[in-house]
Amino acid sequence: MISTIDQRKEFELLKRAYEKAGGDASKFLNKRVASLIISGDKVIGLNGLTGIQIFPQQIQDGVRARIVVEKNTIIQTPIHICTGFVEKRGLQKVIFEIEIGDNSQVRFVAHCTFPWVEEFTHSALALVHIGKNAKMYYSDEHYHSDTGSVILNTTTKAVVEENGLFVNNFVLTKTRVGKLHLDASVELRENAIAELSAKVKASKLDQVLIREKLDLIGNRASGIAKTTVVALDQSKVRVVNEAYGVGDYSKGHIKCEEITKGEAVDVSTVPVLKVMNELAELTHEASIGRVNANQLQTLMAKGLTEEEATELIIKGLIG
């Protein structure tokens, strides 16, 4: 699994960072768990299973990996993907091409860990194709350094075929963000379902731009795109959530909730709904502002200070 001493050291570093961030690194060494571990531009761990094929390839400044889940494959244990960078400066490009065969069901748990970086850009592109009646759950959690100097560009483009399901959760709440540009879009065929979700905590001078987009192409396609952001200090956050209703009886809902705390926060959201079929139905809800006063006072009436109450409410919102 690990071929050189240097790679073993690198693996140990990543493992340490991963566990520090609350992850369970034992999964990486478990032969019964499919996994892909990337450090910088190298693959330092790889384990496939019956029905899952992973084809990694080194590219300039990064790794491209094609992940194929064969038809009619149901994987009970999540596929673990760990992407890390243990240097202080640099660029990392990661391209995932994920193909989920018809009638298959798979769950991914991805962690991106950059705990020591000072000047670093991570560019990730995920091209996802989910076959008919297939289900894919992708959970992507990030742990950055506390310098706020990470530039993260992450793009997901997914196509979900008839009766398929795609659930994508992005989380960056435990460390500084730096600069984030998240762009997730999904095209849904007949009866397909998608849920796109992003949870981000921005602080100090962090900058966040999030775009989540639902293209409800097929008849009775349905989707929800929801963004939850806590913006503190002088952080800047822009959220644009879009839904396009094309198919008959397609349904889409977009939701953006942004909690602000800090006199210099700069936060906005723009919902875009476009119906191109009179039978389609799109809705949206959005809120920006301080923590709900009723929630605050409910907790304060139990003895929490305003700070403690705010912290608990935010913890609930973004985990």
């Binding site: 709900n292 009723n294 608990l312």
Partner: peptide
Amino acid sequence: TDRAKKGLTLLWQEPVRFQGLTVEQYLTLG
């Protein structure tokens, strides 16, 4: 908060909801 610390508390007529907090987390105030 200071009144609550002195032993006063209030049951609201329509208690507010909290996203992401379990009943146990809520009961123990995190």
